[in-house]
């Protein structure tokens, strides 16, 4: 089977590709050039945007039967315009191509950030909970819009079997995202007096979940979490770092000012380190028989080693 994988240069896509390449013909596309690991993909296409015309040519020539859309730009990326183009316009275009060229199964990797970090959040948020992230942080409205675009596509195009995953923080030895960079730093800032529960999933478990979702029959939206939750400070300790408490009244303006110059963590994500956003992945476990293989201790312990390529 021919499968198109977006975000093919990313560490998670490489892990997925490594697990799939013996059985399927993989077509990788990304907005970044692929410097190594070309053997993972039968062919690789470096695009400027997912919504450019060349994307259609890839679908026309390879006639893929499945799409793994792992190329979402994270909430930590600063350029709102670039994120909107990639996440919303790009995703909509890819979904349109899937419907036009007879793709049978579409798996989209979203994020749990769509639920937002809020003091009123109940624990074990299910898939039908309101997506309040854009109400709290308008800066990540694109991620919520991507989520809506996929669910709308599911509704309108029943002929394409579509599944949207909302995973928690994906961490592991080869992942290089905002949270792994933070946890790998020896001194992690923490808001003084706040230590919210956080969830983490190991990169191998996340890749297995994506493959299970891709091979399964169920459609819909599914949360994906790891073994459980633990406080942020505990996660820092398990990852081998130390916490540096900062009063929140000071942290918000300072981080806000510094993040304008890309010197710190983006301010709009700081509430995730103040209030818990704990999701329930019971539906995914029940429908797909998924269980994480890595415990929380193993998941965060894997960050004690320097980042390596998948």
């Amino acid at each position: 089977m021919s499968i198109v994988i977006t975000g093919a240069v990313g560490a998670l896509a490489r892990i997925v590709a490594r697990k799939l390449r013996n059985e399927d013909d993989l077509v990788g596309i990304d907005l970044r050039p692929l410097h190594s690991g070309r053997r993972l993909y039968k062919s690789f296409h470096h695009l400027k945007r997912y919504n450019q015309r060349r994307a259609a040519e890839i679908f026309r020539s390879h006639r893929p039967r499945a799409l793994l859309h792992l190329g979402m730009r994270g909430a930590s990326a600063r350029s709102l315009n670039a994120r909107y183009t990639q996440n919303v316009l790009g995703t909509r275009h890819l979904l349109h191509l899937c419907s036009r060229y007879g793709v049978e199964r579409v798996t989209v990797l979203g994020t749990y950030h769509v639920y937002g970090a809020h003091q009123h959040n109940p624990v074990n948020i299910r898939e039908d909970a309101p997506l309040r992230a854009s109400q709290i942080f308008p800066q990540i409205a694109d991620i919520v819009e991507l989520d809506h675009a996929v669910t709308h596509f599911m509704w309108r195009h029943g002929e394409v079997s579509t599944i949207l995953l909302r995973p928690v923080n994906i961490v592991g030895p080869s992942i290089n995202n905002q949270i792994t960079r933070l946890l790998r730093s020896q001194r992690c800032p923490i808001l003084l007096g706040f230590n919210p529960m956080e969830q983490f999933i190991h990169e191998e478990d996340a890749a297995d979940a994506i493959i299970l979702a891709h091979r399964g029959q169920h459609t819909g939206v599914y949360n994906v979490a790891g073994e459980g939750a633990l406080p942020y400070a505990g996660a820092v300790r398990l990852a081998g770092g130390r916490t540096v408490p900062i009063p929140h009244v000071l942290a918000y303006p300072v981080v806000g000012a510094l993040s304008r110059w890309r010197l710190t963590f983006p301010k709009h994500l700081m509430d995730y380190f103040r209030y818990a956003t704990i999701i329930d992945d019971g539906a995914f476990r029940a429908d797909f028989g998924w269980e994480p293989r890595y415990s929380l201790v193993e998941t965060l312990g894997s960050l004690q080693f320097p980042a390596r390529h998948a």
Binding site: V123, N124, P196, M197, E227, G228, A229, L230, P231, G234, L238, A276, I278, D280, S295, L296, V297
Partner: peptide, 9 residues
């Protein structure tokens, strides 16, 4: 869980 917490903390 293995870290000693329940989902509520």
């Amino acid at each position: 869980n293995s870290a000693g917490y329940d989902p509520w903390g």
